[in-house]
Design a protein around this nucleic acid. Structure first.
Lengths: 209, 209
DNA sequence: ATAGAATATGAGCAATAACTCGTATTAACA
DNA sequence: TGTTAATACGAGTTATTGCTCATATTCTAT
């Protein structure tokens, strides 16, 4: 059987000093990922950039994978911060407006460190045991589905499972793709248009005309 | 300046024998990518699996990148085969039906070796100089845009640039995501539903009600 | 049949990777 | 202050990778 790389931290930093070490390592990993790419991200290099000895690195992380997971996780948390913050208002809004808010939020979320986002999205899946991003994606999906449930009678779709899948996937892809491949769409005016049309796409699909 | 890895074949195979060698190498690369992942895809391993000496590998390919590009390209061609085949009919059809055909085609295209498709989509972007996939994606985009142009007066959108981006991105993401993360959606009945709803999504967006 | 071109081989080198472990340093606390 | 636990260090081991090159085999064509 294949030796599957560990992805969990080796031990928890107890003292202040060591927490700084761990932070430096994670930060360095993120920087290297963004600036030099996944290949160049070796444990030796990480330690070097972090200004930490290679020995210390292995004291807290069992290997490269764990570092990368830590970076991805940190990024995920930052994004969820953004999302949850704006999700409160949505409940009170009428459906059409709510959808627009959701789309706008998706766009905003994608503006959190897009370069890191790109690396994580593109190069991380190869870190097999990374269910985290899966979970991440499902989280949005579930939240959205719950919202649809609460507005069921205003919608023209009946398979909410499928509808959620379609909406979340589309919007996620739209923003994601825009950030990664068409950054020109992220000028302020173009962004407004993107949000409008994205909202329109979903609205037209969900709401009985 | 950084030494950028070559991605073009080193020389063209002239005799039958060498063409077989090249084929074996590309095929082996594809198999390893699918079955063992990108990391395990080393030139040594490729040569081994192909039953070809490492020296021969370097006779035809300057490095790993070139092999991977060859695989991606082969896959792309296979898919374009599928797409172009069905694209003929579309011109004659009324818009609504045409859209459904296009969505159905996208789904079908994604059923060509989905496992390889996944690897290429997820792990290949890190092979920097791979504009091929970009080109690939833009090709669909352009084709679709041209189609919209021809039906302009039947549509409610006016920025066809943006509209194409939204439609192509959404449908691509839908099918892609379905294959990769929700294979249960690819049972035959579920697939029908997916096509219907996908078509509905785009139709509602494009066509004035 | 034979020369020369095309193709194939794989031992082996240089570079780099992941990772260990014995030792040194610092903090915590009695 | 002295003892112990926590933290940090980095030279060095082992494994792997990309890749070369001298040599061997096979094909083509005269």
């Amino acid at each position: 059987m294949t030796r599957r790389p560990l992805t969990k931290p080796r031990k928890i930093a107890a003292q202040e000093r060591s927490r700084a070490t761990v932070d430096a390592l994670v930060e360095a990993t993120a920087r290297i990922l963004v600036e030099e790419g996944f290949d160049k991200t070796s444990t030796n290099r990480i330690a070097e950039v972090a200004g930490v000895s290679i020995g210390s690195l292995y004291q807290y992380f069992p290997g490269k994978e764990a570092l990368v997971v830590a970076v991805a996780d940190r990024h995920r948390q930052e994004i969820m911060q953004v999302i949850r913050g704006e999700l409160e208002e949505v409940r009170a809004q009428p459906v059409k407006q709510a959808i627009r808010t959701l789309v706008a939020t998706a766009v905003r979320a994608h503006r959190v460190d897009p370069r890191l986002h790109r690396v994580i999205a593109e190069q991380i899946p190869q870190v097999g045991e990374l269910e985290d991003l899966e979970v991440f994606s499902r989280e949005n999906y579930t939240l959205f589905r719950a919202y649809l449930e609460s507005r069921r009678d205003e919608l023209r779709v009946d398979d909410l499972e499928l509808a959620s899948f379609i909406c979340v996937t589309s919007i996620e892809a739209l923003t994601h793709n825009a950030v990664l491949h068409y950054p020109e769409l992220f000028s302020d005016e173009a962004m407004e248009a993107l949000i409008d049309e994205g909202a329109c796409l979903v609205t037209g699909f969900l709401i009985s005309r």
